[in-house]
C-alpha cells in the first residue's frame, strides 16, 4: 500500500514540476517542448510500476514496466524475427507495392478526366470502409506466409494514397498552369516540373496515413493465420498462454516500428517539401 502512496506523491510532485515548466513566462523553447512530455511519460511509467507492485497486480492482468523491459531484452532474437516477418516482409513490401500502384493509377486518373470523376468518389468511399476485413480472403488466396500480409497491406494503403495524390495533382492555380503554357511546356514537363512537386504535400499526407494502415493490416492479417512467427501471431498465441509480458514486449516493438516508420516518412517529407509554408521557419 505504501508504494501506491509513493506513486501518488510522485505523480503530484512531477505534475507540479510540469506545471512550473509549462507556465514559465516567455515562448516555450525546443528544450521545454520536449522535456515536458518526456517528464509526463516517465511519470506514467513510474506510477504504473509502483501501483502494480504496491497492489500486487498479477502478471496475467498487467505486468509492470520493468518486467516488460526485462522480457524485451531477454527475447530480443525472437522479437527481431517477428519484426522482420511482420514489418519488413509483410508491411514494407506491401506498402511499397500499394503506394506505387496508387501513384500510377492516380497519374492515369489525372490524365483522363472521366476516370478521375469516377475513381475519386469510389476511392473516397473505399477509404472509409473496414478494409482489414479482406484479410481472411487474401490469407485464403495467398497462403499463411508474408505474401498474404503484403496483399492485405496493398489493399489497405491503395485508396488513401490514391485519393490524396489525385487531390494533390489538382492543387495548382490557373496562373501557374498558364505560366507553364506560355513556356510552351508539354504535358510531361508540366507534370514533372509543376504539378508533381505541388502535389507532394498531399502525397506525403497519404503516405503518412498509410504507414499506420500498413502496420495494422500486417498485424491483423496474422490473426487469420500465419507462420509460427510474426507480431500478430505472437500476440494472439501469447495472449492464449497468458504470457502478457511477451504481449507487451511485442506491442513495444509495434509502437517503435510504427513511430520510426512514420518518422522516416515525415523526415523525407520535410526534405522534399521544404518550400511549403508549413515547413518554413
Amino acid at each position: 500500500m505504501s508504494l501506491v502512496l509513493v506513486a501518488l506523491l510522485l505523480w503530484a510532485g512531477l505534475w507540479a514540476l510540469n506545471v512550473r515548466l509549462a507556465n514559465r513566462s516567455g515562448p516555450a523553447g525546443r528544450g521545454r517542448r520536449i522535456l515536458v512530455p518526456v517528464i509526463f511519460g516517465i511519470t506514467l511509467l513510474l506510477v504504473w510500476e509502483l501501483v502494480v507492485r504496491g497492489l500486487d497486480v498479477p502478471l496475467v492482468i498487467l505486468p509492470a514496466p520493468s518486467v516488460i523491459a526485462a522480457r524485451f531484452v531477454g527475447a530480443l532474437p525472437m522479437l527481431w524475427a517477428d519484426f522482420v516477418q511482420t514489418i519488413v516482409k509483410g508491411a514494407l513490401s506491401g506498402y511499397a507495392m500499394g503506394c506505387l500502384a496508387a501513384f500510377a493509377v492516380a497519374i492515369l486518373a489525372d490524365r483522363v478526366e472521366f476516370l478521375r470523376r469516377g475513381l475519386l468518389p469510389v476511392g473516397n468511399f473505399m477509404a472509409a470502409l473496414p478494409i482489414v476485413g479482406t484479410a481472411p480472403i487474401l490469407v485464403g488466396w495467398y497462403g499463411f506466409d508474408w505474401q498474404s500480409k503484403a496483399a492485405v497491406v496493398v489493399v489497405m494503403v491503395f485508396f488513401p494514397v490514391l485519393v490524396n495524390t489525385v487531390a494533390g495533382l489538382r492543387d495548382t492555380s490557373a496562373m501557374q498552369r498558364d505560366l507553364m503554357r506560355t513556356y510552351g511546356a508539354s504535358y510531361a514537363q508540366t507534370l514533372l516540373k509543376l504539378r508533381l512537386p505541388a502535389a507532394m504535400p498531399f502525397v506525403f499526407n497519404g503516405l503518412k496515413i498509410a504507414t499506420t494502415l500498413a502496420l495494422i493490416g500486417a498485424i491483423v492479417a496474422e490473426f487469420f493465420g500465419s507462420p509460427t512467427q510474426g507480431i500478430g501471431f505472437r500476440i494472439s498465441t501469447s495472449v492464449g498462454q497468458l504470457a502478457l509480458d511477451t504481449v507487451w514486449a511485442e506491442i513495444v516493438v509495434a509502437a517503435l516500428a510504427g513511430s520510426a516508420f512514420y518518422g522516416i516518412i515525415a523526415l523525407i517529407e520535410t526534405r522534399v517539401t521544404f518550400w511549403h509554408p508549413s515547413h518554413r521557419r
Binding site: 485508396f159 488513401p160 490524396n164
Partner: peptide, 19 residues
Amino acid sequence: PLSAPSGGIGRSARVAAVA
C-alpha cells in the same frame, strides 16, 4: 493525420475540401 490509427478513412480535411 487525423485518421491514422483507424484502418478506415484515409483523407485529410484538404482532400475532403477538394472532393
